[in-house]
Amino acid sequence: MNAHVKPVALVTGASSGMGRDFALRLISEGYTVYGAARRIGRMADIEVQGGLTLALDVTDDRSMVDAVGRIIAEQGRIDVLINNAGYGQYGALEDVPMAEARRQIETNLMGVARLTQLCLPHMRAQASGRIIDISSIGGKIAMPLGSWYHASKFALEGLSDALRNEVRPFGIRVVVIEPGGVESEWSGIASEEARRYSANGAYSGLVNHFERMQRQLRLPHAKVISDLVVKALKARNPRPRYHGGLFAAQILFFVVGYPTASWID
């Protein structure tokens, strides 16, 4: 890539939390950034900082086709895809309607797959690209009330690993980021969903415990994850996975056996 051409990045879920921080950070790093989300009105700060915004719903195929089409029409390339859009559909498996379960999988997994499909031909044509999939420590461990969320993230981990080996010969690198606790809207939405479906039945005790736990957490700023994204983008040969955020290192070390020090440095 010509050193004078700014790399082009698409960041989904950019209207809040980690996605917004990713977009703003990449703008400061010299990228041409497209922040994408359903709530386009909440991305004014990205535009103020010199980024571009577009409406994108990762459960709507036409929305995704149009978004990638616009980027290619305006920039002629796409160098980075950060699949960040997602949420936590909480509630006991017995209580969560299947329609909501399907929506969780569509958002956290199928949307990632489809948007990746749309970007890959352009990355292959330019023989370069970085795809960063935002998973979770919840893609390695599972907690009560989060069955559909964990199912989506476990699946995302496997999808990313398979994809990594498919596209490596084309100069495309796939990285998984596994956040622990991070300041965002995630915990509020997860708590609301758990209470919505399971607060008044057999699983009410679990819901109350989950909410108490969420209220007690003191979560770090999303910068801890943005630092990992930038590290993965700057690395000549990025690692398959990076993790950060509250309890991420401890949980992954004790539960999964990740060699903590070598994955953080």
Rank of each mutant, 00 (worst) to 15 (best):
N2A: 02
H4S: 15
H4W: 04
A9R: 12
T12I: 07
G17E: 13
A23F: 03
L24C: 03
R25K: 08
I27G: 00
S28T: 12
E29Q: 13
G30S: 11
R39M: 00
R42K: 09
M43Q: 03
M43W: 05
G50C: 05
G50I: 07
D57W: 12
D57E: 01
S63D: 05
V65G: 01
V68N: 13
G69L: 04
R70A: 07
Q75M: 04
R77C: 03
V80G: 03
V80S: 01
N83T: 03
Y90A: 09
A92H: 07
E94G: 03
P97H: 02
M98A: 02
M98T: 11
A101E: 12
R102N: 01
L109H: 09
L115N: 09
P121Q: 12
P121W: 10
Q126P: 03
Q126G: 01
G129W: 09
G129F: 01
G139H: 10
G139Y: 04
K140W: 15
I141W: 08
P144G: 12
G146C: 01
S147G: 03
H150Y: 13
A151P: 03
S152Y: 02
K153W: 02
L156A: 13
L159I: 13
L159A: 02
S160L: 03
A162T: 15
L163E: 08
L163K: 14
L163C: 10
N165E: 11
E166R: 14
R168H: 09
E183K: 07
W186H: 12
G188D: 07
I189L: 06
I189H: 11
S191D: 15
S191K: 09
R195Q: 06
R196Y: 07
Y197F: 07
S198I: 02
N200M: 00
A202Y: 03
Y203F: 10
S204E: 11
G205Y: 10
V207P: 00
Q214K: 06
A222T: 15
K223S: 12
K223Y: 04
V224W: 10
L228A: 12
V229H: 08
V229I: 05
L233N: 05
N237S: 07
N237E: 04
P240Q: 11
R241L: 03
R241I: 08
G244V: 02
G245N: 14
L246G: 08
A249G: 14
Q250G: 07
L252F: 04
F253V: 11
V256D: 04
G257S: 12
P259I: 02
S262I: 14
